[in-house]
Amino acid sequence: MSAIILFSAVSLAQLMLAAAMAIASVRMFRGPRAQDRIIGLDTLYINAMLLLVTFGIGTGRVIYFEAALVMGMLGFVATVALAKFLMRGEVIE
């Protein structure tokens, strides 16, 4: 019983997160301006991180948690660097 509940919930959640990633990448390609594309990238990696955590629940393995943590940290640094570049034209002044 609980296996069925968990399996269907995890599958549904994975579908929804994959759809969210697809929508975020649509906005990333459509723009219209650079700041929209950067927020699209931000949404994309956050949803990918959530997808990894649901993979962890689905397989019952802890290793996905660490992948998600690394993804969150690298994504944050990337977005901040891009935003800084947008404002100043260079990353390190």
Binding site: A13, M16, T43
Partner: peptide
């Protein structure tokens, strides 16, 4: 489902 649903709604709004 609440978490991934909110993430999806956020993406749709975006």
């Amino acid at each position: 489902l609440v978490g991934s649903g909110l993430a999806l709604i956020g993406a749709i709004g975006f």
